[in-house]
Design a protein around this nucleic acid. Structure first.
Length: 154
DNA sequence: GCCAACGTTGGC
DNA sequence: GCCAACGTTGGC
């Protein structure tokens, strides 16, 4: 009996849209992670396994950085916001037969007492990491176990 | 298939 | 608010 391999990720969200505080206040502290509209990020969502861990990252705000940890409780399923006319994530190409975009369900594991700011993350020796590389806009980032631990205990 | 124009992301 | 970097669109 082998235990499943846990993969590690980083999920970006603008706190003005959805913050870790919003997640904490959800029933069961769980929410659908939808609205991803980039094919590389989508591919990462589809690679996620139940039980994977992800950093919750606040972007485009006063102090960007990691604010907590979530786990994946439901692997990729069609992102129905793409088929909802009134959604800001509406995509006219999406259909029930071809949803195009996917979402996962996350659940709060831990909200950090203090943020790990991007300025600190940038001082770490992470090797190749899209988060700290200039110009990277990827909103779902895979992390090695080593990168995860380096960031977690920074 | 190329590439200029445009829209978006996201740090500062 | 600025602007660099990136992804997407659409004319050719």
């Amino acid at each position: 009996m082998t235990s499943p391999i846990i993969h590690h990720w980083l999920l970006k969200s603008e706190p003005s849209t959805f913050s870790i505080e919003d997640l904490r206040q959800r029933a069961e502290q769980t929410e659908i992670w939808d609205g991803v509209r980039n094919h590389v990020a989508k591919k990462h969502l589809q690679s996620m396994h139940e039980g994977d861990l992800a950093f919750f990252y606040h972007s485009s705000c006063k102090t960007p950085g990691i604010v907590g940890i979530v786990t994946i409780t439901e692997t990729a399923f069609p992102d129905l916001t793409a088929q909802q006319l009134t959604s800001p994530y509406y995509d006219p190409r999406a259909t029930p037969h071809r949803p195009i975009w996917y979402a996962v369900r996350i659940k709060l594991v831990e909200q950090f007492p203090t943020i790990i700011p991007l300025t600190v993350l940038k001082t770490l020796d992470l090797g190749e990491c899209p988060l700290t590389q200039k110009g990277n806009r990827l909103s779902v980032i895979p992390l090695s176990a080593e990168q995860w631990h380096t960031m977690r205990f920074a």
